Amino acid sequence: MELAKEYAREFYNSTLWKKCKSSYIKSVQGLCERCERPGYIVHHKKGLTPNNIKDPDITLNHNNLEYLCLDCHNAEHDFNREKRSATKKGYRFNDKGELVPST
């Protein structure tokens, strides 16, 4: 997983973020909000940029947060999955090794 961008490191190490993150995780009972497995990372729905990193409405707003497990977080940020996949998006191999539409 990619580490925090240089412009965001100070924010992610701040006491304000650590308190916000902790309270958010408690508010969702520590479960991934997509698959209900144990969560791993608090994801910002609207991503942090150098232009909004100091805006608490973006960085510390529970409405902009989502608690995700590692798999769901990686899927959220996996922009090149189709390029790396052995199959076209929307297809998979079944037990016989045949290429079939995903269900």
Rank of each mutant, 00 (worst) to 15 (best):
R34W: 07
K88V: 13
R9N: 08
R9G: 10
R92E: 13
D57K: 15
N63V: 00
S102Y: 05
R9T: 13
E66A: 06
T15V: 07
Y24R: 03
D71A: 11
Y91T: 00
N80E: 11
P56M: 02
R34P: 00
S102G: 05
R34H: 04
T87F: 02
Y24D: 01
C32P: 15
H73Q: 09
S14V: 13
S23Y: 06
W17R: 03
A4V: 09
K18H: 08
K45H: 00
C20V: 12
V42N: 05
A75I: 10
N80C: 02
K5Q: 10
Q29T: 05
H43E: 07
N13Q: 10
P56G: 07
Q29E: 14
K19L: 09
N80A: 11
N63L: 12
I41N: 07
R92Q: 13
D95Q: 15
H44I: 13
L31M: 15
C35E: 07
K45A: 01
Y12P: 00
K5M: 07
K54F: 04
S14H: 05
K89C: 01
W17G: 00
E76I: 03
L99V: 15
N80Q: 07
T103C: 05
N64A: 08
L3H: 12
Y7G: 04
Y12Q: 02
E76W: 09
L3T: 13
I53N: 07
H62M: 14
E6Y: 08
G39Q: 05
D57W: 07
S23N: 12
Y67E: 06
A86N: 13
S22P: 00
P38M: 10
I41G: 01
T59A: 14
T87Y: 13
G30V: 11
L3R: 09
H44G: 12
P56T: 15
G97E: 03
L60Y: 04
V28Y: 01
Y24G: 05
C69I: 10
L3M: 07
D95L: 12
K96T: 10
D71E: 14
D55R: 14
F93S: 02
A86I: 01
C20P: 03
P38Y: 14
T49C: 02
S23K: 15
R34V: 14
L70R: 14
Q29H: 11
E36S: 12
N74A: 08
S102L: 15
L68P: 06
W17N: 01
I41K: 08
L16R: 10
R81F: 05
T103E: 14
R81L: 06
N74T: 15
L3G: 06
C32M: 09
C72Q: 14
N63Q: 11
T87H: 12
G47E: 14
H77S: 04
L16P: 00
V100Y: 02
M1S: 13
L16M: 04
E66F: 04
G97H: 04
